[in-house]
């Protein structure tokens, strides 16, 4: 049902009412923004000393370094989670019960655990000196498990005739999976897979919790080491870091939506099944 079914085409009275609501909302928004601006003003956030640090090239480089570190973790964890996801998905569809069972336990366990609990345990266990690997492994296990469910739903959504035809041509089980089913599943699930990659990108910021020097941690360091007469510039750092994160995630999200619109291959049931993770805010 489209939104327009919910209300009639506005007549003169409704248009007037709509205008009134628009005015009231606009005023409320302006008041909110004004109040925030006022808080900025009275707490000295516009003071030049709060922003001066960003003019130094070392700080600018630190931010670039943090961004590159974030992207590095994202690239490794994203790629590894796709491989793990494909393996686990095929494992859950295996003809051998033990393989199915083990894959199911892995997928269900890592999906049910809060990611930060796992990353922290990994960090304290083996990776105290190499926090990057705690982050990468944690991200890979969690997102790989979610990707496994996405790909599995995709494989199940491939029409049965495809596998039957492949078997009739004399392909082996592994060939049917590798050559026929998985490529189609990945293609039809691409929007959902990319949405989950957005989640992976977002979760790289958990590196902050285990003191790994990704973008958010670098931001924290910049703010914590800049003592100005008006206090530490956390607000300013936020205003620099947050747009970078949001822009990266938006780009990926838009890519997912563009592919969804262009492809037209996503089966709605499969997407609904598998999109649950991203839609749930995991």
């Amino acid at each position: 049902m489209s939104a327009t079914v919910l209300f009639d085409t506005p007549g003169p009275k409704a248009r007037a009412r709509s205008k009134a609501y628009t005015g009231i909302t606009g005023l409320a928004l302006a008041a909110l923004l004004g109040w925030i601006g006022y808080r900025f003003w009275v707490t000295g956030q516009f003071d030049a000393s709060m922003w001066a640090r960003f003019e130094y090239t070392d700080v600018q480089w630190a931010i670039v370094q943090g961004l590159l570190t974030t992207l590095k973790v994202f690239a490794i964890a994203g790629a590894a989670s796709l491989v793990l996801g494909a393996v686990l998905a095929v494992g859950r569809l295996s003809d051998h019960a033990p393989v199915r069972w083990v894959s199911a336990v892995i997928v269900e366990f890592f999906r049910a655990m809060p990611l930060v609990i796992m990353i922290y345990a990994l960090y304290r266990w083996q990776f105290t000196d190499r926090p990057m690997w705690a982050l990468v492994i944690g991200l890979t296990l969690y997102n790989g498990s979610v990707q496994a469910e996405v790909i599995r739903a995709g494989i199940n959504a491939v029409p049965r005739g495809q596998a039957e035809a492949a078997y009739a041509l004399g392909l082996r089980k592994s060939q049917v999976m590798r050559v026929v089913l998985v490529p189609q599943a990945v293609r039809s699930m691409l929007p959902t897979i990319i949405s989950q990659l957005v989640v992976t990108l977002k979760d790289t910021s958990l590196g902050y919790v285990i003191t790994y020097e990704e973008l958010l941690y670098v931001g924290n360091q910049i703010a914590a080491t800049t003592n100005t007469p008006n206090g530490f510039p956390y607000v300013q750092v936020m205003m620099v870091i947050a747009p970078i994160y949001i822009a990266m995630c938006l780009l990926l999200s838009w890519a997912a939506r563009a592919i969804e619109r262009r492809g037209g291959r996503t089966t709605s049931t499969g997407a609904a099944l598998a999109g649950a993770g991203m839609a749930a805010g995991d």
Binding site: N220, Y234, A242, Y245, C249, G281
Partner: peptide
């Protein structure tokens, strides 16, 4: 407002939001 709210919040890392609310919001005198 609804669209903006959803788009921004869904594309922001939760850790970043926590960071902003715990460190930046109190700096505004709250």
């Amino acid at each position: 407002i609804g669209t903006t709210w959803v788009t921004i919040l869904r594309n922001t890392p939760l850790t970043l939001l926590f960071f902003a609310s715990v460190f930046a919001v109190p700096k505004l005198g709250l």
